[in-house]
Amino acid sequence: MSLLRELPMSALTERLASGGVDLLIGPYVYRIRSNVAAIGQGLARLYADFTLAPNGSFVDFDVGLRQDTIAQKLRGQAQFLFDQQSPFDTVPVQQAYAFLEWGMNWCVSLHVNEYLKLHAAVVARKGAGIIMPGIPGAGKSTLCAALGLSGWRVLSDEHALITPGTIDLTPLSRPVSLKNESIQAIQAFDSGVILGPESRNTHKGTVAHMKADMAPHSHDINTVPAALMVFPRYSRDEPQELYHRYRSASFVLAAYHSFNYSVLGEDGFDAMQHLVSQVECFDLVYHDLDWAVAKMEELVG
């Protein structure tokens, strides 16, 4: 099977604009279609080491970011497509790349219920999976990016996919979304970071995605057992600390951060109980990435 990087840019552009490019991403096949230049550039930069799905593969998510009508071209707008339908309003074409990534997240957030899904970054070190739930702005993506640049494996920046009744985490490795000051913070942390197109003035401010599949076995689709749940919180004004959380309080907070805990009903409770009873839970308050990464290293011994 070949990697995206093996496709010349001209071939990638042509395939995106016609039938689409099929990529293996975690357990899924995404078909991506686009006639917007930034999409091809972003994919070539951030998904270079992703595998092209074999011809005839079942496509789980068919997504696109296209400018098709004259009105869209005149107004500089583009449209996110899912199964060639338009679930959202058009967006400025300068923000197309960020919207493609958000749309790819949305596919999993909305349509996948075979897992207990938490809104969380997931990383792994020495075979131990760490779930880091958090609201947007909590600092989970920034920490996830710093860990990815420090030799950790990034399983996901957005979704913890837990098979109910187990502690198994299914990897869904994709680029890490960085926003506003986090972009400079990560560039300062590692000047070698590979970033995709910058999308300015989005509803989240300026957004750029980071190539996150640097660790060996980044695209291994085998599950990784969860060992810890860490709730990160960036705070410039508080002392940095790492401390144990009660499991019961962690249960409720993790449920709050779940995309489908309520949808799963009693099965969701059972799945969360199974998970929380088998992982240690911590709060991590940080403002210095080197300190936070060192603390995470301590946690996995």
Binding site: Y246, S248, F251
Partner: peptide, 13 residues
């Protein structure tokens, strides 16, 4: 259903 780890608080579904 209860999830009780003897922590002083209990999760109830």
């Amino acid at each position: 259903k209860f999830y009780d780890e003897n922590e002083g608080s209990v999760v109830y579904f």
